[in-house]
């Protein structure tokens, strides 16, 4: 498994991107990631369209923090079963995983 973390937005509008192999994640990072995936699955099965998965197509916008110039994080989890992507406002992004975007 490989995890890609992207951070976009912010006052600067600069994109930061980093990745980490699954086996290199710390137990805390692993737990945070598992929790996010579970929450995302739950939202999907509940049919809630507040899902954090960004819709396809340019300009599709996921949940945002209020205000302006906030960061948005996108996690991409790549494994044998394919690639899934979870988009989160910075307020919901686990601290443990933020640093991966800056490596």
């Amino acid at each position: 498994m490989k995890l890609v973390v992207e951070r976009t937005g912010g006052f600067a509008g600069l994109k930061r991107r980093g990745e980490r192999n699954g086996e290199d994640l710390s137990p805390e990072q692993r737990a945070a990631l598992d929790q996010l995936v579970a929450a995302s699955d739950q939202q999907k099965s509940a049919g809630k369209q507040q899902s954090s998965d960004r819709p396809a197509g340019p300009g599709g916008v996921a949940e945002q923090d209020p205000g302006a110039d906030r960061f948005t994080y996108r996690l991409e989890i790549q494994d044998e079963s394919g690639t899934r992507s979870i988009t989160l406002p910075e307020s919901r992004m686990p601290k443990e995983l933020m640093g991966i975007a800056l490596q």
Partner: peptide, 25 residues
């Protein structure tokens, strides 16, 4: 950090999902 991506003309408008549709671009 790469290069400044801002366009100065509509023909170069950036279609992206990043940054809420490229609001800072």
């Amino acid at each position: 950090l790469g290069k400044d991506q801002q366009p100065g003309h509509m023909k170069d408008y950036v279609q992206t999902q990043d940054d809420n549709g490229g609001v800072h671009i």
